[in-house]
Simulated scan of single mutants.
Amino acid sequence: MAEDSKLEEDRISNLPDGLLNQILSLLPIKDAVATGRLSRRWRHLWKHLSVLNFSLSHFKIYEECDGTEDPTEEFRSFALLVNGVLALLRNPRAIRKFHLHCAHSHLDDKFRAYSVDTWVRSVIGPHLEELNLVLYSKEYKSAFKLPQTLFTSANLISLS
């Protein structure tokens, strides 16, 4: 019986918050948020993450779309996730690393361009060290313009 209780012991939940946040930062953001369902101890841990990795990885490059997917609706679902996470973070200005992989524009979809711009602007802060953007666009004229405040960010080490 004593052996069974040792097997059921949750050693991961007993780790310090800082270490758990490092572990959570290695997960895709959707999975990191989902860990909040594990227990009360985990419910709000993800809200203290300083490393965010948002990827619409299942997004098909425009040339690969077969017409059955709605890229606008897919992006709107993705935007709900990103907006929700950024809104619920304890301190979005304390983000150290921000990775964003998605489509920047699609035809005349201004919502998409506005969303990406808003997300990038919201994470620019005194702690931002790494910004990685992979932005797709079918239109060559719709290049993403980096905010000027990014160039005065004192701690920025990596921009790609």
Rank of each mutant, 00 (worst) to 15 (best):
M1V: 08
D4I: 10
E9A: 13
D10V: 09
N14Q: 13
L19H: 06
L19S: 05
L20G: 05
L20V: 06
N21S: 03
N21M: 13
Q22D: 14
L26C: 15
K30W: 07
D31Y: 15
A34S: 15
R41V: 02
W42N: 01
L45I: 11
H48K: 08
S50A: 11
L52S: 02
L52H: 10
L52Q: 03
N53E: 03
L56T: 00
S57A: 12
F59K: 00
K60F: 14
K60R: 09
I61V: 10
Y62I: 03
E63S: 15
C65G: 01
D66R: 06
T72V: 14
E73D: 07
E73G: 03
E74I: 03
E74P: 00
A79E: 09
N83V: 04
V85D: 01
A87K: 11
R90N: 12
P92G: 13
R96N: 11
K97W: 09
A103N: 08
A103D: 09
H104R: 02
S105T: 05
H106M: 07
K110L: 10
V116N: 00
W119M: 05
V123E: 04
L128I: 10
E129M: 10
E129K: 13
L131I: 05
Y136K: 00
S137Q: 00
S137R: 01
K141W: 12
S142K: 06
L146G: 09
P147V: 05
F151T: 01
F151D: 01
S153H: 08
S158I: 07
S158H: 11
L159W: 14
